[in-house]
Structures are given as C-alpha cells and as structure tokens.
C-alpha cells in the first residue's frame, strides 16, 4: 500500500499533474507493484553478497580524445524554443 500523500509528493517531484481519479489509480497501481516486489523479502539472503549494481560488467572507460560535436542548428532544432545560438528556457530566478 502507498498513501495518497506520498503519491502526490512523487507526482510533484516528477512534475506530473494528476487529477483525483488519476491519483487514486496511481496509488492502486504503485501499491500493487510495491506488494509484488515485497515478496522478495521472503527470500533468505543471509549467505548472499550484496550487489551494488544490476549489471555484471565493470570498468568501462573511454579515452580522453575529442570527437566532433553536433552542428549547432541540429542541436538546437528539436528544442521547443531557441534562437540561432541559444536554447530558450523559462526564467527561473526572479
């Protein structure tokens, strides 16, 4: 189970505006996911080494060698707002 209040908080962190019915549905669905995952707690892990990551590879590096960047117009094109040099974003500091 998950409390409505917590769902509301998570929705806010994710910048989602949920209507009341959506909120109730999200609480139901998240709750059932949490219950499902909770079943893992039944497994005895006393002799299992903790894992710090889900993948089994490690130490993947890249050499410090520059490669060409995107042409600027191509980089800016998908943005909702831009001029010929900059992305334009809503002002945050008043």
């Amino acid at each position: 189970m998950i409390r409505d209040e917590e769902v509301r908080h998570i929705a806010h962190l994710a910048r989602l505006e949920l209507s009341e019915p959506d909120l109730a549905r999200a609480a139901r669905e998240l709750g059932s996911i949490l219950d499902y995952v909770k079943k893992l707690e039944a497994v005895d892990t006393a002799d299992v080494e903790p894992e710090i990551h889900a993948v089994s590879i490690s130490n993947v590096y890249r050499k410090d060698e520059p490669r060409p960047s995107l042409p600027r117009d191509e980089a800016l094109a998908p943005a909702p707002s831009h001029d010929d040099k900059y992305f334009r974003v809503p002002k945050v500091i008043e």
Binding site: K85, R88, V89, K91, I93
Partner: peptide
C-alpha cells in the same frame, strides 16, 4: 550555463 538576459521571461541556455 544559464544567461538571464532575456527580457521576455526567458533565459538563454548554453550547453
């Protein structure tokens, strides 16, 4: 880097 120079409620973003 954000540049807060826009007069129209927008900032410029240099990535």
């Amino acid at each position: 880097k954000l540049l807060h120079e826009g007069a129209d409620g927008e900032s410029f973003l240099d990535m």
